[in-house]
Design a protein around this nucleic acid. Structure first.
Length: 889
DNA sequence: TCGAAGACGTA
DNA sequence: CGTACGTCTTCGAC
């Protein structure tokens, strides 16, 4: 059975472009994707529904064809192609490349000519069926018993099957005569005028009468009335139309239909391309479709599994060869939950399952020793969770030499999600057997002879972890990340687990008080706001309703545009307040402030554990620069800028049995990293002189003595210094400082004149990244930025700013991770009870045991200060107090 | 129920 | 037209 599916890429993408609202389909970088999305969606549906064995997509190259040569007006008068569409054609081709779909284009020919040629060749070569998907009606002339045109009717999801009968029913002529009919009627979109007054009905009647266009021409004098006059008057045009709408069937193509057999597609490429396009649902649909039509998984790992009984653990563990892949059964969430079972698989294909709930003492002892033995190499996927679960059973995990989630993150840090089964497919081309089944087959993990159903799934996963870890070892090595993984990322997992488990104590009464306070403020501000507009009870939390009040009811000047209207953000409201003061605006800002703080407090209250402490979760594989992030709750964004917000920090307190909280933070770490990496003498001197950085820089930029730097000058310089590391433009700086672009430019020029090394360095980063494709931190953490060479200016600019920032932010993150390892290790080595609780990018919060304060301070200063050897000192500020707020300085 | 958009908190 | 995050609320689509 040979079934060829041919698509007119251009016409389908163009249809999709108008069918799907562009504003709903664009990436975070601003690239429109509606046409790509619609086209890809159609393609996936076609693959699913039609199951073609052969496949190709044709594109138009330019409008220069034999048609435009014969008739200069061909397709003239068309609206120019929207620029939002143009760029998407290349993206469509990228999708096709990733999916392994052949696409064809040939100078001087239209896509439909290519389709017609392939259709003819396929028919002659004995293909059973040809399916043509095109939004161009000319394709209808190709319809035959075994050639069907799938014509999009509306949107991107509905296609009509144009069989010979369907063509005849719709147009009143058989497909062979469709071109005759079209020649008479004309085609507006091709700028081919037909005979005035002659529509499809009349044309069909004539063709029925005279057989075809030739017959009609021979008898044209017999046609009566006005229509007859018109057709005689326009005969030349009709014949020209007929020549032009005839599709070519002899286009010189580099392929034959047989070459179009569907072949392997590149899963990595699909991930890469779809990641870039931010297609999530579509990717799932694609995998679901192709997964069944054409199994991608091809690996075959077989496992001999055994459920260990009493007394069998030690012997089995002793027989392990190579690194063990582990999978932990059970549930866990930070402080709570525990492990119920453990599956272990080794490199020789042995696997075992241990039921942790019914473990005999001697087995437990053997297992505990093996788990805690650093010399017994282990691999897990996302080990921190399992560590918590094992810890809940008193088991310690050591000897981690690969965490597959972290390894995948180091290889491609921009991904944000590293699902185990996705990675397994991507790196090993294997799939897990279905849960509960012993499914063994192509691309499935073969469980071999398993003694019992218990633990099957877990053992399969453990075996898969081992396999995946081996593949990822290589991938990590390819990006030069072996040391980073071994020395930084893997050791830090355990530190994070300990921090999460410890949590931080909060004063619940104080939290409730705060909530009540903020709540009262919210209510008061809301009342004030309502009063200010005559009592209308608008929802102040709804930007939509606010826009009505601000710009219609109050008639205030319009603010900056957003996707759906005009912004009501705090900056814009403050601006409005200056231009057109109104009590509503003031009340609105107060309401925003208070309700934000209220919900922060409410969130904290909800997340307090049974132990009266808040246990955040640190995400180690989210931030593309190498930073950690904190969720559930996020303790890295607790307010500090306003006094009202700082009250929340007072609620985080030292726990019972401890002396105080200690906050230790790096002073201007990113600026110091920049000084070091750039080697700029001026900036290095600024830090080594030990005086106020911004004052120093200000004196250089403004050409005055440090003592003469005003606070205003200092503020400007400070904003600029920090902005540099983000790729700030003169425009952005001018907006932030509320100065003219010219003055902002002068400021930046002045800065770069005095600190030329910084400018050179920033340029160098981007140049290097463009050449190599990635940026690198001090510890070799890479970030790949393919958009640096994008045709799309917005995407390219964005990638350049990321390239600028990634080594700076990322090196600072590396340093902090190193410091955390040092502090944690030193605290243990000194046998102190003190422990690290929180990390907020450049700050550590330590809970200090009784009488340990001085020693802890010494350790923290030493370890944080020694985390990197820079050309400038790593200054650390330390403070202590009963609460987080008190510990700040 | 889910996701997008808008808003805003941190470094 | 400034990087990196997470969370909350509203609102409309499903």
């Amino acid at each position: 059975m040979k079934r060829l599916l041919l698509l007119d890429g251009h016409s389908l993408a163009y249809r999709a472009f108008f069918a799907l609202p562009a504003e709903n389909f664009s990436t975070s970088t601003g690239q429109h994707t509606n046409a790509v999305y619609g086209f890809t969606s159609m393609l996936i549906n076609l693959l699913r529904d039609e199951e073609p064995t052969h496949l190709a997509v044709a594109f138009d190259v330019s409008r220069q064809t034999f048609r435009s040569e014969e008739y200069a007006e061909y397709k003239a008068g068309r609206a120019t192609t929207p620029s939002e569409f143009k760029g998407q054609v290349n993206l469509v081709k990228e999708v096709l490349d990733a999916m392994g779909v052949t696409h064809l284009e040939l100078d001087g020919y239209e896509a439909d000519d290519i389709l017609a040629t392939l259709t003819t060749q396929a028919t002659q070569a004995g293909f059973d069926e040809v399916l043509l998907c095109s939004g161009d009606r000319d394709a209808l002339q190709l319809v035959r018993d075994n050639v069907t045109v799938l014509y999009p009717v509306k949107g991107v999801s509905e296609l009509t099957r144009m069989t010979p009968a369907a063509v005849e029913e719709k147009y009143g002529v058989p497909p062979e005569r469709y071109s005759d009919l079209a020649a008479l009627v004309g085609e507006k979109s091709d700028n081919l005028p037909g005979v005035p007054g002659v529509g499809p009905k009349t044309a069909a009647k004539w063709i029925g009468q005279y057989g075809d266009l030739e017959g009609l021409v021979a008898n044209v004098d017999q046609i009566k009335g006005k229509a007859g006059e018109n057709v005689r008057a326009h005969l030349d045009g009709v014949l020209r139309n007929r020549r032009l709408n005839q599709l070519l069937v002899d286009v010189p193509l580099p392929v034959t239909p047989d070459d179009l057999a569907r072949h392997d597609w590149n899963r990595d490429e699909v991930h890469r391309v779809f990641d870039g396009l931010e297609f999530k649902v579509l990717r799932d649909r694609l995998f679901a479709t192709l997964g069944t039509a054409q199994p991608e998984a091809e690996g075959d790992v077989s496992v001999d599994g055994v459920v260990l009984g009493d007394g069998e653990v030690e012997t089995w563990l002793a027989g392990i060869t190579g690194r063990a892949g582990l999978f932990v059964d059970g549930t866990w969430a930070k402080g709570a939950g525990d492990a119920s079972g453990l599956a272990i698989a080794d490199e020789s294909g042995r696997a075992a399952y241990v039921d942790l709930t019914t473990l005999a003492p001697e087995d437990e002892q053997a297992l505990a020793e093996w788990l805690a033995d650093v010399t017994k190499a282990k691999a897990l996927h996302d080990a921190k969770g399992p560590m918590h679960a094992l810890a809940a059973r008193g088991l310690t995990l050591a000897g981690l030499t690969n965490d597959t989630a972290i390894a995948a993150y180091l290889v491609r840090p921009d991904q944000r999600s590293y699902g185990f089964e996705d990675l397994l497919l991507r790196y090993c081309h294997i799939e897990l057997p279905e849960t509960g089944k012993q499914a063994a087959g192509q691309g499935m993990l073969d469980l071999g002879d398993v003694g019992a159903t218990q633990g099957d799934d877990a053992m399969a996963r453990a075996a898969a972890v081992a396999t995946l870890a081996a593949a990822l070892d290589e991938a990590v090595a390819d990006v030069g990340g072996i040391e980073l993984m071994a020395e930084l990322e893997l050791p830090i997992v355990e530190v994070l687990a300990t921090m999460e488990q410890a949590g931080i104590a909060v004063d619940l009464d104080a939290l409730h008080e705060l909530e009540a306070d903020y709540d009262a403020q919210v209510v008061a501000a809301q009342q004030d706001a309502w009063d200010a507009i005559g009592g209308e009870q608008v929802n102040l939390g709804s930007p939509k309703q606010l826009q009505v009040v601000l710009f219609e009811t109050l008639g205030l000047p319009k603010t900056k545009k957003t996707k759906t209207g005009y912004t009501t953000d705090a900056e814009a409201i403050a601006d409005l307040s200056e231009k057109a003061p109104h009590p509503f605006l003031d009340a609105l800002l107060r309401h925003r402030d208070a309700s934000k703080l209220r919900s922060t407090v409410q969130g904290l209250i909800k997340s307090i554990g049974d132990d009266g402490r808040i246990h955040t979760t640190y995400q180690q594989t989210i931030a593309a620069t190498g930073r950690l992030s904190s969720t559930d709750p996020n303790l890295q964004n607790i307010p500090i800028r306003t006094e009202s917000g700082r009250r929340i920090r007072r609620v985080f307190v030292v726990g019972e049995g401890y002396d105080c909280l200690m906050s230790a933070d790096y002073s201007q770490i990113e600026m110091r990293v920049m000084a070091h990496l750039s080697g700029d003498e001026g900036l290095i001197q600024a830090f080594n002189d030990g005086e106020d950085l911004h004052r120093f820089v200000g004196s250089r930029v403004f050409g005055v003595e440090p003592s003469e730097v005003t606070s205003e000058m200092r503020a400007k310089v400070k904003a600029m210094s920090y902005g540099l590391a983000y790729g700030l433009s003169a425009f952005g700086l001018s907006k932030q400082l509320r100065i003219s672009t010219a003055e902002a430019q002068r400021l930046m020029d002045g800065y770069f004149e005095r600190f030329g090394g910084v400018r050179d360095y920033l340029r160098q980063i981007v140049d290097d990244a463009r050449a190599t494709g990635y940026t690198e931190t001090m510890m070799g953490r890479r970030r790949y930025l393919p958009d640096l060479t994008s045709d799309n200016r917005q995407r390219r600019d964005m990638a350049e700013r990321m390239a600028l920032n990634a080594p700076i932010q990322g090196s600072a993150a590396d340093i902090m991770k190193k410091a955390m390892l040092g502090v944690d290790e030193a605290l243990r080595a000194a046998n102190l009870r003190s422990r690290v609780l929180l990390q907020v990018h450049d700050e550590l919060i330590v809970e200090v045991g009784a009488g340990e304060r001085d020693e802890v301070e010494r350790i923290v200063r030493e370890q944080m200060g020694a985390a990197a050897d820079l050309a400038v000192p790593l200054d650390v500020n330390v403070g202590t107090g009963r609460s987080w707020q008190d510990a700040e300085h």
